[in-house]
Design a protein around this nucleic acid. Sequence first.
DNA 1: CCCACATAATTGACGTTGTCAATCATAATT
DNA 2: AATTATGATTGACAACGTCAATTATGTGGG
Lengths: 163, 163
Amino acid sequence: MAESTQHGEDPWEGAAIPAVPDRFLASDLVDEIEFLAARARSLGSAHANAVLAPLDLKVRSYSVLAMACSDTGPSQRELADFLRLDPSQIVSLVDALEQRGLVFRAPDPRDRRSKVIRPTAAGTELHQRAAAAVRVAEETSLASLDGPERDQLRVLLRKIAFS
Amino acid sequence: MAESTQHGEDPWEGAAIPAVPDRFLASDLVDEIEFLAARARSLGSAHANAVLAPLDLKVRSYSVLAMACSDTGPSQRELADFLRLDPSQIVSLVDALEQRGLVFRAPDPRDRRSKVIRPTAAGTELHQRAAAAVRVAEETSLASLDGPERDQLRVLLRKIAFS
DNA sequence: CCCACATAATTGACGTTGTCAATCATAATT
DNA sequence: AATTATGATTGACAACGTCAATTATGTGGG
């Protein structure tokens, strides 16, 4: 053994995040929200997917499960709009969750075309563990922000996400 | 004719953004940065891609072009790290831009393995128009934020994007 | 100097995601 | 009743993400 200072493989969970050369931090791109959001989200969803992997979930499937576990009784069309996914993607996500016994398609009494996605007991239970995992990932992603800053960010994102 | 009030096809540019039912705004998901960021970014990049489409660019290719046009002389590896893309994706992006005569691969005197991406005159010119278009898209995406809020958002995103 | 190992660019494979058109069942409108 | 609109579904295809292998070059230890 004794492979101390060598670093061919980082003996660490997750992928090492390469540092950014200082000269890049002065480029015009770092003033563009579009770019900053893309990079921030790439980092964030990498963390989230990592903590969700042990539960066999990704951010996508987690979002669907979370909505199913909310008391809002979302239809698939509503999920598509809310999560900004194509209806066909919702079909496969719900299919996968349904096959795992986490959610089921309940009939909508108002509209027989529509199906309301509801959680099973197992789904509710898994969601609780997943939500805890996501909170951990969020903690990691937002490590550089203090409490008030995180609240600020939430408020600002909510505004542009639901404008 | 006379299909005035009918709305099979929205006579409007871009895709209409479906409204979100109020009851969803109380779900747990809207407190999670991960979700808010995903939705905000989905909206934002849709806008950005729309304004870039006439220039035959997407946010991806625009980012590479923008970095090429900065005075930072980025190598492909550095672009991969900075933009958080796989090196192989940078290859195709640069290939496409190079074939259009917008950038070229310059040799790196320090390291003959490495190639520095630089803009052509046409690349510089297109970048200026593209940057203006992106500013327009940003204006649209951030319409619900005032000036100080936009600055706040930039600062917060910069922190988490380069932590 | 030589050797072993690390790194930059590239290619190719392969699974995942995004987008679209078509279909069927049911609603809504006229 | 007929027409039109909408929800779910399927299938096709392009775009994207990820990984392994290859080639050329750099780097550090003997």
